[in-house]
Design a protein around this nucleic acid. Structure first.
Length: 429
RNA sequence: GGAGAGGUGGCAGAGUGGUCGAAUGCACUCGCUUGGAAAGCGAGCAGGGGUGAUAAGCCUCUCGGGAGUUCGAAUCUCCCCCUCUCCGCCA
């Protein structure tokens, strides 16, 4: 959520950001009008409350309180009625009531874009920052991962359909072991980079989901238990970012780094027909997530390090990739700036997203109320939050199967992974 | 799931209808004291919102959350959530 005071102070900055995201900036004028109405109503309410409080205090000081109350009966009755209607007005117009038009507009304005974000109309306008590694040269026609995995007997889509329907998969034998090896490998690297490992809940409350900005009116991507009013996390960004919600952090504690290995659940309703084969787009996948809480002045550098932490994994695995700065229309609701890492997939001959690293500045922290005090006399400030995958496990497994496939149908295991996996190749068993 | 107890400021902990946003202690900040420190003494020290200059000041709201009673609620009533203890069940 944006700071409403910032929108009042510098509405043009908000309009510019919205335009770069391809969103109609007329909502800023709506918001300013609704905000003026709200502050009007609030002023009226507080004026009335002040009058009532003065009279009540007078009664409280009187020797005969009942008599004093009777004396002011008419004024008090009138005030009571006026306060009641003023309260109704404030509630209906204020930014805190979830049903108010002001809250509706405010809560659906995405984060301010960073100036460094490139302009663009679609993903085609994303800026390639750097490319690492060369796509492997095959003296045979490289197969897609689902064929490799199926023929090795480590990937089973048919039985997954039997159990759970489409967009689920089963890893077995060396496949399951490879997935686990990746998780362990990623977590060990995160620990080495001073992230605190967390094993969070995979179901979170509506409040938690709201606090990290996942509950916009456009988001129907989440699995949800209606009876318990609990959401299955679409990423462990949610519990990791909200971990310190409503807390005041010590300045010396920042930057705080968290990591978690978790499943992620997504309906992918809007992606029907896309990536229908294979592991690329599943209702359930696993991921090691990195989250930072930083002081505002530290978040730019933090994003660079976060991206570097994710990149180093791809480099250790020897997987060719490129780093891409998302353009204005591609940056998500919460983020001010996003760097994606895209890994090379030989079967498709394209780079595909394997990590997305974002600086969310104070946007989530304001919702989740995560603050810090710079010094004992200082005021409370919101932290900046960042998140990124390091890495998506299913997609890493896909990249290994495809990039490391051999002419005989076996798959070479990257040497960095051999100690965790326990073998240097996967052969048909 | 059942029974009981409880949720108050950074922490501990008073407060059961009237200047209570809240005693006291600890922690913290500043000052005095000291060669320096400790101790001691004095002062300060919750957050949100509105208005003001992102100042001071003023106003308003907040004692787990929500609704209610009342001129007035931390205090009374109702609902919900959470924590602790005991029992049941389970991994």
């Amino acid at each position: 959520m944006l700071d409403i005071a910032l929108i009042r102070r510098d509405p043009d900055r908000v309009r510019r950001s919205l335009r770069r995201r391809g969103i109609d900036s007329a909502i800023v004028a709506d918001l300013l009008r609704l905000d003026a109405e709200f502050r009007n109503a609030l002023g009226e309410l507080e004026r009335l409350q002040s009058q009532r409080n003065a009279l009540s205090a007078q009664i409280g000081r009187a020797a005969d309180k009942a008599a004093a109350a009777d004396e002011h009966r008419n004024a008090l009755d009138a005030l009571k009625a006026q306060i009641e209607s003023a309260q109704t007005m404030v509630a209906a117009t204020g930014p805190d009531a979830s049903a108010s038009p002001l809250a509706e507009v405010l809560q659906n304005i995405p984060n301010l874009l960073d100036d460094a974000v490139p302009d663009g109309a679609s993903a085609a306008d994303n800026a390639v920052l750097r490319t690492w590694g060369a796509p492997p040269a095959f003296d045979f026609s490289p197969k897609p991962h689902w064929e490799i995995g199926t023929s090795l007997g480590i990937l089973d889509f048919e039985r997954a359909v039997k159990l759970s329907g489409s967009r689920f998969s089963i890893l077995s034998g060396a496949g399951a072991r490879l997935s686990r090896a990746l998780a362990t490998f990623f977590l060990e690297r995160a620990a080495r980079n001073e992230y605190t490992e967390v094993a969070p809940p995979y179901l979170v409350t509506r409040d938690t989901m709201w606090s990290t900005g996942q509950l916009t009116k456009f988001s129907d991507q989440m699995f949800f238990d209606q009876a318990a009013d609990l959401f299955m996390i679409p990423t462990s960004e949610v519990p990791l970012t909200a971990l310190r919600a409503d807390e005041v952090l010590d300045f010396g504690e920042l930057p705080k780094r968290y990591t978690a290995y978790s499943p992620c659940f997504r309906k992918e309703a809007g992606a029907a027909g896309k990536d229908t084969r294979g592991l690329m787009r599943q209702h359930q996948f696993e991921k090691v997530e990195l989250v930072w809480l930083t002081a505002p002045e530290g978040s730019d550098a933090a994003l660079e390090r976060l991206v570097a932490d994710a990149e180093s994994l791809l480099q250790e695995l020897g997987l060719p990739y490129r780093a891409v700065a998302l353009c204005g229309t591609d940056v998500g609701f919460n983020a001010a700036k996003t760097i994606d890492l895209e890994v090379w997939l030989p079967s498709q001959g394209v780079y595909r997203e394997i990590s997305s690293c974002s600086n969310c500045t104070d946007f989530q922290a304001r919702r989740a109320n995560i603050r810090f005090r710079r010094d004992t006399k200082g005021k409370l400030e919101f932290v900046h939050t960042l998140n990124g995958s390091a890495l998506a496990i299913g997609r890493t497994l896909v990249a290994i199967l495809e990039n490391c496939q051999q002419a005989d149908g076996s798959v070479r295991i990257p040497s960095a992974l051999v100690p965790h996996f326990g073998a240097d190749r996967i052969v048909r068993s």
